[in-house]
Every structure is written in structure tokens, then in C-alpha cells.
Amino acid sequence: MIQTRRYEFLVQNTPQKEWIEKRGILMWLAMFFIELGAGAFVVSSIVGNQLGMLLGWLLCGVLGGGFHLVYLGHPTRFWRMVLSSGWKTSWISRGLAFVTLFLGLGLLHMVLLQWASPVTGLLIAANIFAFLAIIYVGFVMASVNGIPLWNTALLPVLYLVLGVWGGLGLTILTLEATGATTIAVGSVEEWSRIFLVAFIFIVFVYLLTIRYQGATGKTSVRVIVAGKLAPLFWIGVALFGTAFPVGVAIATWVAGLSIPTALLFVLIILELLGDLTLRYCILKAGLYAPLIPSTSYA
């Protein structure tokens, strides 16, 4: 039997804390708002919803970028992340470049849209960088090979689905707010349902894959589904973020009715809450494998 005297974290699974505890909470929020904002911009630009584009741009730039900056130890040096050659290997550097280019091109497109004739190429470029802004966080985390829960190619896919799904929800909200036609709202709603199914499938496959990826991965999954994060996961992600939207979608589909606006608003808020909760769980349950094996070398 081993009795550790000091640095027990080295013989047990150690949770990462830098990006979720204390000021690390800002990273969690930054990741959420950057992907949500970029997703809303992409979806809104496709359906021609200017308010959604502006809201997405603001969420990504002001909240996402703002939280990122406030988190840094030296925010005034942030320019080094783009202008240094770090982009060759660092996903954070690449991500900041994607977000900066998306924000710049997106703003230019919105300005042209308002006061001059828009350029299609500009919108396409803005959307490409918005798309990259959605998925870069997944790559940032997937490249950390010390944390099995993150070290999977499924994470960028999951975050892509979350970003676009959240973007669809925000687009519906803004379409409703601007009094758009029922047809426009309905088509976005249909896509939202497709992404809801994709979300359920990917979360299931993701957790199942990690479950069989060694002892540390198994522990991470257990922490999420049956450990201290279980209440958050089952209430926030499974109930609010998944079961309610699925239940309402099935009920209205069977009854052949459209979802009342007020209920739609509530469902989208719950979906976003589920998105935020799942991101929290993934960051919080990120465990490092023990450095020293729990059995003696002797």
C-alpha cells in the first residue's frame, strides 16, 4: 500500500485548474462566447439576418475577446500572440489570428452592408474565419496529450456542433425579435433540430470513446456522469440542454403544431445553458494521468 507524503497529485489523477478555477473561469466563458458569437454570425449571414450577425460579432469580439484578454497575465502583450511566429505550432496563436481576421472582415462586411454595397468575397472570407474561430478551441484542447479527456479528435467536432447549434439558437431569437417570417424561422428551427440530434450523438460517442481510453479517461468520464459533476451534467446538459428540447420537438411534431414563441425562447436559453454546462464539465473533468505509477518501482 502506498502512502504519499507530498505532492499527491503526482500519484493520482490531477485535475487541470488553470482554465477553470479562480480566474480560469474567464477562459471557460471566453471559449463559450467566441464560439457562440462566431456561430451566430455564420448562421445569421446565411439567412440574411443582420441583427444576428451584429449580435454574434459583439458576443465574439466583446465578450469572448474581452474575457480572453482579462484572463491573460499580461494583456498588453496580446499582440505578440498574433505577430510572433507562434502560429506555426500554437493553436492559441492561430485561434487569435482566426478571431481577429473574422472580426475585422465581419465588421467591414457589416459596414458595407449598411452604408454601401456588400462584397460577396468579403462575406465568404469572414465566414471561413468565423468557422475556424468556432473549431480552434477544440484543437487547442485536443492537442494537450497529458489530458485524455481532451486529447481526442472528437473534441473539435463536438465544439463545432456546439458553436453552430448555439448560433442557430441565437439566430432564431434575433429573427423572432425582428419579426421575421415564420418560414425563415422555421427553416432555421429545422436545422437546429438536426444539430440537436448531432449533439446528442457526438456527446454519447465522445464520452464512450474516452471511457475506453485508459484509466484516467475512464475516471474523467466517471467524474462527469457519476461523480461530483454528475448533477451539473444530468440537470444542465441532459435535462435542460437535451431532454426538454427533444421533448418539445417531438410533442410539436406529433401534434403538427409550431412551437409558441415564448416556449421557443425558453428552449433556446436552456440549450445555451446546456452548452455552457457541458463546456464547464469538460474543462473541470480534465485530468492528468499520474506522473508516478501508483505501484512502487521496487
Partner: peptide, 22 residues
């Protein structure tokens, strides 16, 4: 002088050998 304090290196190190001077 170049470190921006993003702590990505700290997370990326599988040996947890880095410390943030907060």
C-alpha cells in the same frame, strides 16, 4: 518579457512542471 500569461504551456506540459507566478 515575451510571456503573455495565457498558461497554455502549463496545461500542455504532460509533466506538470510549470508554475504560474500570480
Amino acid at each position: 518579457d515575451k510571456c503573455v500569461g495565457c498558461r497554455y504551456c502549463l496545461i500542455a506540459c504532460p509533466y506538470q512542471a510549470r508554475t504560474y507566478n500570480a
